[in-house]
Nucleic acid binder design. Structure first.
Lengths: 277, 277
DNA sequence: TTGCTCCTCACGTCACGTGAGGTGGC
DNA sequence: TTGCTCCTCACGTCACGTGAGGTGGC
């Protein structure tokens, strides 16, 4: 407690009033998030003003919510109403993540208790040589829906008036898609020879000439298209490939044979498939 | 892929089959959580058996749930049914923590939007000198209920037949009580002179002679006794003390003037109080 | 003058990710 | 023989907690 017309709080007093630790306060000083109103030149003692208490308490609350410091720094500089909105948005992402983990926890328990009993019909088929139009992008959870909508539209329009489409579209997830991991994701669609001719002109659309090949696949109902419900199907295919002596010639695909969004749970909507070399 | 009668998987193949990274697998090898079936002497190459896949997948799933490695290590060595139960227990603690954070997020938003409008009646009173029996313990969230039940019982029994109780009991939280932080917590009860005489014989019960003093307090209804609903009351008392020129002579207390559990929301159940020096 | 508070390094925590620099296997 | 995979350090990440060793303030 010092004076110079106004009252200052030492770091210890300020820590008590704000439920922050002195160590955290020193960090926030260094990073500029919460700089003491005054710092003694010779001793280095930090002195905080009472008007800094509210900001510090907001920081403390946000840290208790596990908001990362970088985000805290942006939030505390917003107007109160905007800060409230930012907190609401951030908390929604937490709830989304928690919902996913809740699913996984429940699935794991069911699985360990032997209540998951998936017997898959693993089939193989011969695929003819064909030309495929693909769109590749790195997208995270926030961008995945927009990517699908836009890309489906572009691939659909590709063969307009040309009977351009020559098979079901498929998705490839080359990497995990979550808030902090962004694919890459590929959307692909077989196209007719006439449509293939125009691909070169389209920016962002690649052309792949797939040779004839075999593929293994499992046909899944809409019910099994969520996560982690798909997991055992992935594992079953992986095990089949590993023990078959065949080697995969491309990444595993989700071939979309019907619209998931309008299908009832028992409708078969997707072939999970692995091309074989 | 090697042979020696059985098939082995290289670290890369094993990583793909289990959705763990090679780096994580090397860590789990070092820590003993997941040791490769075979390690080549000269090259140091790790080779995993197919029978290790299930364990590795369980590890991967648990890590996706953010179960710490130490806990993972105990869970994967349990029987499947026990592991399921352990996961259920662990997930419950996650849900409890999330519920608390959800409350705080909602409170923060309401507060920033100006929807929290607590006006407290801050009062002072003179307390006479008195003798207090206290029980101190370090307890975390898991132990707090048991501590209260046991300690209330002991303090109640203390003056049996002696008109031993001479005032409302109070709680002091010297440190935060959560899953990973354990108090210390104190339960205290003023006792009569006759009861005070027997305290020395009771293990774990301390006697404190409180001098006469003033105290500031805010009387709270049951509705405000949850967290973070109590927070503004704490802050208001802290601000009062800081600006009053008085200094606190002891830690802030929750004086229990009625039973919270049976009270309706408007009933006044607690004096949040600070003794003054 | 004695404690108490404050100061600045510096290292530990947790579970990996990410190169650097080098060797082994098909 | 050429890539590709694998190896072992070693450092970075994130937000502090926890001493060590020393000085300032009432």
């Amino acid at each position: 407690l010092e004076d110079g017309n106004v009252r200052y709080l030492s770091i210890g007093e300020f820590a008590e009033r704000t439920r922050l630790s002195p160590k955290a306060l020193r960090l926030y000083d260094e990073s500029g998030l919460l700089v003491p109103a005054r710092v003694d030149d010779r001793s280095g003692y930090r002195y905080y003003g009472e008007e800094q208490i509210d900001r510090a308490r907001l920081v403390a609350s946000l840290r208790r919510l596990d908001v990362p410091l970088a985000t805290v720094a942006t939030i505390v500089d917003l107007s109160p109403v905007d800060a409230a909105a930012a907190i609401a948005r951030w908390w929604e992402t937490v709830e989304a993540r928690t919902a996913e983990r809740r699913e996984l926890a429940a699935y794991l328990q069911a699985s360990l208790r032997g209540e998951v009993h998936n017997v898959y019909d693993i089939q193989t088929r011969q695929m003819p040589a064909r030309t495929v139009a693909t769109i590749n992008r790195r997208v995270d959870l926030a961008g995945i829906d927009a990517f699908f909508n836009e890309s489906f539209g572009r691939l659909r329009g590709l063969g307009a008036g040309l009977e351009g489409i020559a098979g079901c579209p498929y998705l490839v997830f080359y990497g995990e898609v979550s808030e902090d991991s962004d694919g890459p994701v590929e959307l692909a669609r077989p196209v007719s020879d006439e449509a293939a001719a125009v691909i070169a002109d389209e920016a962002g659309i690649d052309r792949i000439d797939e040779p004839a090949h075999d593929e293994v696949f499992i046909r899944l109902p809409a019910r099994d298209m969520s996560w982690p419900a798909m997991q055992p199907a992935y594992e079953a295919l992986g095990a089949w490939v590993a023990t078959s002596g065949r080697s995969p010639s491309a990444h595993i695909r989700q071939v979309l044979i019907a619209d998931q969004r309008t299908a009832d749970p028992d409708t078969l909507v997707c072939d999970l498939s692995v091309p074989l070399g």
